[in-house]
């Protein structure tokens, strides 16, 4: 399982890459592995507001549906549109090509509440028990 150490994580298995006043959001390698082959993804539109901890989209495998939760509050400024035609990208490359949205966040404070790589690894291990 791949856990890049330059990313921040959530307990709902999203990752964030912080770029200035934006974060890039996707789901982790662990999450895609748990879901299995992803067949469909539903993402918001540019300009939509998102709220920390609230669902902004859905990923589906053939037998499961999983909501994706926003790690921060703010506004969607970019969406990875090619994913809708090639949802398998999320399985193949969850941290790069498989990114989902970019959010311009409203408060840097929320970033502090995110998990760092060690905390996330530990969380995943605990969850497996």
């Amino acid at each position: 399982m791949n856990f890049p150490d330059d990313l921040k994580y959530t307990k709902e298995h999203e990752w964030c890459r912080i770029k200035g006043n934006r974060v890039v959001v996707g789901i982790t390698d662990h999450a895609q592995n748990q879901l299995g082959d992803i067949v469909y993804v539903e993402l918001p539109e540019v300009g939509d507001p998102v709220k920390k901890g609230e669902s902004f989209g859905v990923v589906e495998s053939t037998k499961a549906v999983s909501e994706i939760f926003s790690p921060v509050s703010g506004k969607v400024v970019e969406v990875n549109d090619p994913l809708s035609d090639a949802p398998e990208t999320i399985n193949e490359d969850p941290y790069e090509e498989g990114w989902m949205i970019q959010v311009e966040f409203s408060s840097g404070k929320e970033l502090e509440e995110l998990l760092d790589v060690d905390a996330y690894k530990k969380f995943v291990e605990e969850e497996a028990e």
Partner: peptide, 14 residues
């Protein structure tokens, strides 16, 4: 033994 082996449900859904 059946006329078909396991079917690719991922492909059907994608």
């Amino acid at each position: 033994k059946p006329v078909r082996a396991r079917l690719d449900e991922t492909r059907a859904a994608r």
